[in-house]
């Protein structure tokens, strides 16, 4: 009885959800004077939303550990550098391996620092972000590295950031991440720790070992995100004064929105959907003439607070 009710509830939700998205799309199309449901706009949205999706997936694993890593932006900048340098040397293999290597290494270092220093991760992450930003500046100004990193990734190796390959990568990523999150021991263990670490530890799950393994998973995702970012944009701007943190804001909004839907949709599936929604909204805003970098940021901030409030609803615990 419960089983079939359950299934019916899911179907109804799916219908409503798809319907709502369709209505929203038509509405967007109408308010933009017919400029939303066009090939060019949809292409832009599809291309835009891929690399933040990978970061948001990374956040799913990070938040399950209770970590808020503010240095991810800094890691992505360095990862993109590596992607560019090795990509220009070795082609596609270099694009992927370069980003991957840096992402894995740095995020793994971060996890070790979080786990062993016991400094709250957000503040440790800010310190690390400063260091990573500084390294990027060193690479940019040093005479020996400048010619390597301050160039664009060669046009012929940018395919991963363009259609249709970016969507193929997204699909492959979705299957792989869904698999890891839902069907592997490490995925189950980290969700158990995130949900109730007391029960998890009583049930024989090793906290530190699980955390470090998750560091490798998150590192892989952030590394891939770097490679995709470089492939999409072709080059990377160096960020200083902690502005690299701003690279986390869109993924954060995506994650928070997906978090709200998690009772209905598996969060790993919800992330790319929410990513498309968030980027669609900001694309519409751009089409409507809302200037980017200014009022769009203001709306993003508002989104974060609203998603935060809705996601927090019903929580009675102590919140700092």
């Amino acid at each position: 009885m419960t089983e079939s009710l359950e299934r019916r509830g899911k179907l109804i939700f799916a219908a409503v959800f798809v319907g709502a998205i369709a209505v929203l799309a038509v509405l967007f199309h109408a308010v933009t004077g017919g400029r939303f449901l066009t090939a060019s706009t949809l292409t832009i949205i599809a291309k835009n939303s891929v690399y933040p999706t990978f970061i948001a997936w990374g956040l799913c694993f990070l938040f399950a550990c209770g970590y808020t890593d503010m240095s991810i932006g800094g890691v992505v900048v360095l990862g993109s550098f590596a992607s560019c340098v090795f990509g220009n040397w070795w082609g596609y293999a270099g694009v992927i391996l370069g980003g991957l290597a840096v992402g894995l290494l740095l995020i793994f270092i971060n996890f070790n620092i979080f786990a062993f220093s016991r400094i709250p991760s957000w503040i440790a992450g800010i310190s690390l972000a400063m260091v990573y930003e500084a390294i990027a500046v060193f690479l940019k100004v040093s005479d020996s590295t400048k010619p390597l990193v301050m160039v664009s990734l060669r046009e012929e190796y940018r395919g991963l950031g363009q259609l249709p390959w970016s969507l193929v990568i997204l699909a492959v990523g979705l299957v792989a991440v869904y698999f890891v999150y839902n069907l592997t021991t490490i995925g189950i263990n980290i969700r158990a720790i995130g949900g109730n670490s007391a029960v998890a530890q009583k049930m024989g799950i090793n906290l530190t070992r699980t955390l470090l393994k998750v560091g490798l998973i998150a590192g892989t995702l952030i590394g891939l995100a770097s490679a995709l970012q470089e492939s999409y944009a072709g080059m990377t701007t160096v960020k200083t004064g902690l502005t690299s943190m701003s690279m986390l804001f869109y993924p954060l909004a995506i994650y928070l929105l997906a978090q709200i839907l998690r009772d209905q949709i598996n969060i790993i599936i919800a992330v790319p959907i929410c990513s498309a929604i968030v980027y669609a909204v900001f694309n519409v805003l751009a089409l409507l003439g809302v200037p980017s970098g200014t009022l769009q940021e203001a709306i993003l901030g508002l989104f974060l607070i609203v998603f935060g409030v809705v996601g927090q609803h019903g929580n009675r615990g102590v919140v700092k």
Binding site: A192, G194, G195, N196, A200, K202, M203, I205
Partner: peptide, 20 residues
């Protein structure tokens, strides 16, 4: 008191610690 892990599905909770 301890209870189940809310972020995992019911089936996995049944075999939590015995998923091997």
């Amino acid at each position: 008191e301890l209870g189940v892990v809310g972020t995992l599905p019911a089936g996995v909770n049944v075999f939590l610690g015995h998923t091997r």
